[in-house]
């Protein structure tokens, strides 16, 4: 087996005094497409944020490609929840995607024509070429999510974290996003997705990570996506699989 892309050792995190993550341990194999699932408040977003140094950890460490986060920042792309930014910000779709390249542009420099071209191509890949100059508040929720995905694409990372990219989007966007994720996967990229819809897990993801403040189970979808694990993660009040329990 190849060495893991991510290894998380004993990670814990808290919001003020409430522990949200407890002793989380797992490893992610290269080229996998993993769903992180769990009930509300299970710490799914916190897990991602803590892994990306956006939230402080209490204990533990995370390594990427065998290295600490700071050394591999540029190989990691992050798509936050759509609601985490102000969509009334005075800017257009192309500009938001171009922001994904700011790290590459460098200090005191403006994005060049080739940066803009890359950004436009990423928008086209997400079927958003016609909306490049549209003010972002004029886009639908699904279109905004596609802009975020396009922004992640231009970052050309090896590893992607996505926080609920399918939440509240239309069916066409859901298909477009999943096709994009599968394409990324096919060229060897590793993708972790916080996912809320248990009905689509088996169709979309090859790995599942059940989280409820700590890891409940983690592995290949066909092995661990069982009624038993779902009940353990969600605590029994679930009516999804096969008409419910």
């Amino acid at each position: 087996m190849s060495s893991p892309v991510i290894s998380v050792n004993n990670l814990s995190a808290a919001y003020q005094k409430n522990t949200v993550l407890r002793n989380v341990n797992f490893e992610i194999t290269p080229g996998s497409l993993t769903a992180i699932v769990g009930p509300n408040g299970a710490g799914k977003s916190t897990l991602i944020k803590t892994m990306l140094n956006l939230h402080p950890s209490l204990t533990g460490e995370v390594q990427y490609f065998g290295l600490p986060f700071k050394k591999v920042k540029k190989r990691i792309g992050y798509v936050p929840q759509r609601g985490s930014v102000d969509w009334d910000f005075p800017t257009d779709a192309l500009d938001v995607v171009t922001m994904g390249l700011y790290g590459e542009v460098g200090w005191l420099k403006r994005p060049s024509k080739s940066h803009k071209k890359q950004a436009f191509e990423a928008l086209e890949k997400m079927g958003m070429g016609d909306y490049a100059n549209r003010q972002i508040s004029q886009l639908s929720g699904g279109q905004q999510q596609r802009v975020f995905l396009a922004r992640a694409l231009v970052q050309n990372a090896d590893l992607y974290f996505m926080d609920e990219p399918l939440a509240g989007v239309d069916a066409a966007t859901e298909i477009a996003i999943m096709e994009t994720l599968k394409k990324l996967n096919a060229i060897g990229k590793t993708v972790l997705v916080v996912h809320h819809d248990l009905q689509t897990v088996e169709d979309y993801f090859d790995h599942v990570l059940f989280l409820n403040k700590t890891i409940i189970n983690h592995g290949k979808t066909e092995k661990v996506f069982t009624k038993d694990n779902i009940t353990r993660a969600y605590g029994g009040n679930i009516r999804i699989l096969g008409g419910g329990i």
């Binding site: 140094n53 956006l54 920042k73 540029k74 936050p80 938001v96 994904g100 700011y102 790290g103 970052q155």
Partner: peptide, 14 residues
């Protein structure tokens, strides 16, 4: 612009 719009992205790209 980027730190005002999306500071998490800003941090993640350095």
């Amino acid at each position: 612009k980027i730190t005002s719009f999306d500071s998490a992205l800003a941090v993640s790209i350095g």
